[in-house]
């Protein structure tokens, strides 16, 4: 498998694992120094906003705390399409940009609706042992998320 293929597979696997709520498996795809951010630009206040930001430990705690909270249990499905992979061999990294669509399916009846669109901006570490996520920024175009959601995209 080429490096590009393995990078693409990493992106897709990260989506599948989160879809399955396999949080342990998701975190295994991440470097120890992993950082995760959800951001959006608000034309209304003319500012970039951060809506969620954690390091790997923070993500682990967020996942651990999930069952203690009341949450919308409608499952979401992440559809990613890798647009570009730019290798930075000197630094053992790849910069990856993927389109992201998130669909939400109701538990009662199974109606599916588009929940959010945006892009994934990933920094992937290529330092042996297979590619790992070093950083992920989800830049959302969608800013109206209804009642919101407790699980990161």
């Amino acid at each position: 498998m080429s490096t590009r293929q393995s990078v693409e597979e990493l992106v897709y696997r990260s989506c599948m694992l989160l879809d399955d709520r396999n949080f342990k498996g998701y975190l295994e795809l991440c470097e120890p120094g992993f950082r995760y951010t959800i951001s959006a630009h608000s034309p209304e206040i003319r500012k970039d906003m951060i809506w969620l930001q954690h390091d790997k430990k923070g993500m682990e705690t967020l996942f651990t705390n999930l069952p203690r909270h009341n949450s919308d249990h409608s499952p979401i499905t992440r559809h990613a399409t890798v647009y570009s992979v730019e290798m930075d061999e000197a630094n053992g990294q790849a910069k990856v940009v993927s389109a992201l669509q998130v669909f939400k399916t109701t538990l009662d009846g199974g109606v599916t609706e588009l929940f959010a669109v945006g892009k994934l901006y990933d920094t992937v570490s290529l330092n042996g042992g297979g590619p790992k996520l070093a950083e992920r920024t989800v830049k959302l175009d969608t800013r109206m998320l209804g009642i919101g959601y407790h699980v990161p995209f």
Binding site: M49, H69, D72, L145
Partner: peptide, 24 residues
Amino acid sequence: RIRDHNTIWGPFGRNLHEDLLGVH
């Protein structure tokens, strides 16, 4: 401030989602 805000508020905050789930 942004960190403090996002912990409980915002579309991915722990409390706001619960409040909105309740009124929904």
